[in-house]
């Protein structure tokens, strides 16, 4: 539906939300933070998949085709930057907007993530869950309705 919206020039986001067609993937290893985000996003009407590690995340990306990925750059056992660059190199996943959520946040980290193709970089300690949800909304509009 969203893919069609892209071609035909836009479908009101509300109607897609009602049908639960907007899919978000949250990749975050901290259970508490992940659950807060998932809860907030579900309240907005999105279909939310969650992953605490890269293996689970990969399955969701391939099987569920999320429209936005919230990605923690510090994941157990794997470098989040690697994950990001893999996703952006892969033809099938390169178009999915990725919002980095992390507790890293030096200028080098931010620049590196943006260079690798991340949509934005949000430091968890500096943003409220609502601000992250707002960023997801904005990204959806930019990527799927206005182009």
């Amino acid at each position: 539906m969203i893919e069609r919206a892209l071609k035909t020039g836009g479908v009101p986001i509300a109607s897609m939300l009602k049908r639960g067609e907007v899919k978000i993937l949250v990749v975050e290893d901290d259970k508490f933070l992940r659950e807060i985000l998932v809860g907030k996003l579900e309240k907005e009407g999105y279909t939310v998949f969650e992953a605490s590690n890269w293996n689970v995340a990969q399955k969701h990306i391939q099987g569920d085709r999320p429209h936005v990925i919230l990605l923690d750059i510090v994941l157990p056992g794997i470098d989040g930057f690697e994950v990001l660059s893999t996703l952006k190199r892969n033809r099938e996943t390169s178009a999915i907007p990725i919002i980095i959520i992390s507790n890293l946040g030096s200028r080098e980290d931010v620049d590196r993530a943006l260079r690798l193709g991340a949509k934005s970089f949000m430091i968890k300690a500096h943003h409220t869950p609502q601000e992250i949800v707002d960023a997801v909304k904005k990204t959806l509009e930019e990527y799927y309705l206005r182009r």
């Binding site: 901290d30 508490f32 933070l33 807060i36 809860g39 907030k40 309240k43 507790n103 430091i123 968890k124 300690a125 409220t128 869950p129 609502q130």
Partner: peptide, 19 residues
Amino acid sequence: LRTPLSIEKWAYNLLLDGD
């Protein structure tokens, strides 16, 4: 420190938002 501080921040915000 950032992770527990984020947890605190998010929890307070969740409460304040009335969620």
